[in-house]
Simulated scan of single mutants.
Amino acid sequence: MKKIAILLSMVISLGMFAKSADAQVNVSINIGSQPMWGPVGYDYASYYYFPDIDAYYSISKRQFIYLNGNHWVWGSSLPGRYKYDLDRGYKVVINDPDPWTRAPYYRQQYGRYKGWYGKQTIIRNSNDPKYYQWNGRGPKGNNGHDNGNGHGRGNDNNQGHGNGHGHGHDRR
């Protein structure tokens, strides 16, 4: 009877330890939710701020937030008047809620990045393995996606005739 009580207390202790350890490991990652034109290096991002046009992008809602007169407006795309290149324009990652409500702060803090076109690697162009699943890039043997001419080395024991689907120019 004493052995059963000790065993039962050990099981309960292990269960409580496992539960507390589980509660401590809570990491948010939204790499796959970020647009292909988003900057690399961030496992999580709530918003992007575009210093060149003083606008924001909500990653979770996939909506742009921009000024129309004196009011912040949400839209699935930027109005044509912006003529903004999302691939080349500089993006600042912001993880504060509703950053447009503190627009003067962000203008002052990140205004120095105006005009930094093309100075930021975007997810689409990244060679970082953590983005391969989303940007189709990666080393040879990555399911035949070698960004080349369709002669990837996927599923063919590296014989050069895999089921590859090239995406653009071969950069070897």
Rank of each mutant, 00 (worst) to 15 (best):
Gln34Ser: 05
Asn142His: 07
Asp52Gln: 05
Val25Asn: 13
Gln63Pro: 07
Ala5Cys: 06
Ser126Met: 09
Arg62Gln: 13
Asn127Met: 12
Gly152Asp: 13
Arg153Lys: 08
Ala5Trp: 05
Asn163Gln: 10
Ile59Trp: 00
Ala18Asn: 09
Asp98Leu: 15
Arg137Phe: 01
Asn163His: 14
Met10Gln: 01
Gly168Pro: 13
His151Ala: 14
Pro129Gly: 03
Asn157Cys: 07
Gln120Pro: 11
Lys61Pro: 01
His169Pro: 08
Trp134Asp: 03
Gly15Ala: 11
Gly89Met: 14
Ile53Ser: 13
Pro97Gly: 08
Ala45Ile: 12
Ile122Lys: 15
Tyr110Cys: 03
Asp43Cys: 08
Lys61Ala: 13
Gly152Cys: 08
Lys114Met: 15
Tyr113Ile: 00
Gly15Leu: 09
Asp54Pro: 10
Lys19Val: 07
Val25Pro: 05
Trp134Gln: 00
Tyr132Phe: 12
Asn143Tyr: 11
Tyr66Ile: 04
Asp128Pro: 05
Gly152Met: 10
His71Lys: 10
Trp116Ile: 02
Ser60Arg: 04
Asn158Phe: 15
Trp116Asp: 14
Asp43Gly: 15
Asn95Lys: 11
Arg88Gln: 15
Met10Asn: 02
Asp98Glu: 14
Gly75Cys: 01
Gly144Val: 11
Leu14Phe: 13
Gln133Cys: 00
Trp37Glu: 00
Tyr44Thr: 09
Gly144His: 03
Arg62Thr: 12
Asp128Ala: 12
His71Arg: 07
Asp85Glu: 04
Phe17Pro: 10
Gly152Lys: 08
Asn157His: 10
Gln159Leu: 05
Ala21Val: 12
Ile31Asp: 04
Gly144Asn: 02
Phe17Glu: 06
Asp22Ser: 11
Tyr57Val: 04
Ser28Ala: 10
Ser58Lys: 02
Arg112Ser: 11
Arg112Tyr: 15
Gly160Lys: 01
Ile29Val: 13
Gly80Cys: 03
Trp74Pro: 01
Lys130Ala: 00
Leu7Ile: 11
Gly168Val: 09
Ala55Asp: 11
Tyr90Met: 09
Gly89Asp: 13
Lys130His: 00
Ser76Gln: 06
Tyr117Ser: 12
Tyr56Leu: 05
Met10Lys: 01
Pro79Trp: 04
Gly115Thr: 04
Arg102Trp: 06
Asp156Met: 07
Ser33Asp: 15
Val92Trp: 14
Asn127Ser: 13
Gly136Glu: 01
Arg171Ala: 12
Asn30Val: 02
Ile94Tyr: 11
Ala21Trp: 12
Pro99Met: 12
Pro39His: 07
Tyr57Ala: 06
Ser20Met: 09
His165Trp: 09
Asn125Ile: 02
Gly80Ala: 15
Asn149Ala: 13
His167Arg: 14
Trp100Thr: 05
Asp54Ser: 08
Ile122Asp: 14
Met10Arg: 01
Leu14His: 01
His167Val: 07
Asp156Pro: 05
Ile123Gly: 11
Gly152Ser: 10
Phe64Leu: 01
